[in-house]
Design a protein around this nucleic acid. Structure first.
Lengths: 226, 226
DNA sequence: AGCCTTAACTTTGGATCCAAAATACAAGCA
DNA sequence: TGCTTGTATTTTGGATCCAAAGTTAAGGCT
């Protein structure tokens, strides 16, 4: 029962997003405390944090329960990320990007090219893409001029299905995922082009569309007509 | 020192937005606990909540400090609300509004017309406008189909200068505020028109512009050319 | 038999205590 | 005099205790 290393918050986050704590399940402080082998105090603190993050919600007068999300919630969370990252990109395009940011973005994009160059995807590539994708997005958001936008995105990203690196889920259909990443890579390159040319509206629009990759693209990339 | 009625979180929120706790000031748990006349426990819980809300930030390895906001932060927070409410409005326009929502919105708009009809503003009108403005915005956000968007807006609104009803600050220049509200009222009416006609892009654009009222409109409404 | 009242139990909120970590301070050494 | 190391103090994190509020269940009354 030794787990003082990882914080209670992250443990609970993982339990929730792994579904081990079922959506709608009511959480008692004592029960969770015992399960995690800690006292009630850190659990109480964690519940407040998780509530603000949106993973827990108050259950009536007393206690919390695991929040359940509908398909619409998932869709909206992705769109929220889209408009927020779009906002960041537009601001960046309008204020102009520094040469070092330009260098960073080109680096991530080059990594993406390298990763996709061999024409297919294997499982190790997934974590690499996740890293470079995160790097690209973070670089843009961090340079948007205000922490406020980044904070809003970070809070939204606490919903496990909303984060930018949650694109890939299906490691069993790597051909489809490859085409998905090809598209995402193209988006990255176009976004950089728009940013460099000061095309704020286009950069915003591209980021918003980019967020939707992995959401409704499955049918198109499968060749289905729906 | 009796204050068990209001929660520690709201007390701290008020102290921060009133500036009694200066931005950048480091908050110790014991100091705040004594000042509020409670024990450390509720303060510790409150700090976690306020941190998530963005009003506090961790100060180094230990403790929290009151977050300070730049002009850019204010600008960005307002834009964040703009894009999020814009997203809500677009979704609403695309899915179509129910007749009861239509009724609600028309009610708030009618109240706005009534309030502005006499051609000037007095101090009592300010709270009335705040109420109807809040009602109009909340009705749209609540009907956008998912709690997720509303939550993101709510979290953003914890920044005191970002909330939709923080438009009016200057009760000393009521003529200027009157023209500001005239414009806001026009926005409300146009938004409803766009929503009713299913013009998603226009509804979104209007909401985004609407959020900027009270931000940079001062110069224009004053007649200054800047 | 059904409903209301009351009592027992469960669960959370607040306070206090203890330990660990971090910072500040002081003394010793180069 | 300046830097480093060791100690003391402050401050936070975790655990436990107590009280209050809520929930459940049982028993009595109509």
């Amino acid at each position: 029962m030794s787990n003082s290393g990882k914080s209670v918050v992250s443990q609970l986050r993982r339990l929730i997003s792994d579904g081990e704590l079922a959506p709608g399940k009511r959480l008692g402080e004592v029960a969770v405390a015992e399960q995690l082998g800690v006292s009630r105090t850190p659990v109480r603190l964690a519940f407040r944090t998780l509530e603000q993050e949106g993973l827990l919600q108050r259950a009536g007068k007393r206690g919390f329960q695991v929040r359940e999300f509908s398909d619409t919630d998932v869709r909206c969370a992705v769109e929220v990320r889209g408009v927020l990252e779009g906002l960041a990109a537009r601001r960046l395009a309008e204020q102009g990007l520094s040469s070092e940011l330009l260098g960073q973005l080109e680096l991530w994009i080059q990594k993406g090219r390298d990763l996709l160059a061999k024409g297919y995807l294997d499982e190790d590539d997934v974590v690499d893409w996740s890293e470079l994708n995160l790097g690209f997005h973070d670089a843009i958001v961090a340079s948007a001029g205000s922490e406020v936008i980044g904070d809003a995105i970070a809070r939204n990203n606490h919903l496990p299905f909303a984060a930018a690196d949650s694109i890939i889920l299906d490691t069993g259909a790597l051909e489809r995922e490859y085409r998905k990443l090809q598209l995402a890579q193209m988006h990255h390159e176009l976004v950089l082009q728009a940013l460099r040319d000061g095309e704020g509206a286009r950069a915003e629009m591209l980021m918003r569309e980019h967020a939707l990759v992995g959401l409704r693209y499955a049918e198109v990339l499968e060749g289905r007509s729906r």
